[in-house]
Amino acid sequence: MKARTVIISFVCIAVITTLAYRIIKQEWVVYRRAETLYQKKEYKKAIPYYTSLLEKGFRQPVVLSRLGELYLEISDLDKARLAYEEILKNEPLNMWVRITLADIYMRLGDYKRTIDLYTLVLSSQSDNRHLHILLARALTAKGDFESAITHYRIALGEKQ
């Protein structure tokens, strides 16, 4: 009798907990679903879940980041740009976001913005040779060969 009561209690608790979770924390259910799809690399399917989360005001930083990442994965550069610009508004000091956004601008052919962003990042990381090369590439694409040469030289440890 006692054992049966305990089992029934456990089942009831499990059902109530699950129901409560699904009702009270609906957005977390969606988030879990989105994350599962993301882990399975089903990017196109995952995007609507993350988008709906944002629409519902679920403002976890990882959601925007995931969305940006997914748009990049499916090469939707315009949407990826919007996502990363939004992230940058929330995290203006996040270097990785700046670099990613600069890369998106570069791929979109917006060399001026690419150069501006890399220059900004370099102002706080002047010894980062990788950044000098990225900036040099953007300058080359813009046709500013002389500045590009300067940054390549810096990257190669041949400061002019």
Binding site: E35, V62, N94
Partner: peptide, 8 residues
Amino acid sequence: AHGQQKDA
């Protein structure tokens, strides 16, 4: 939410 977002 735990993701693999990179921090500053």
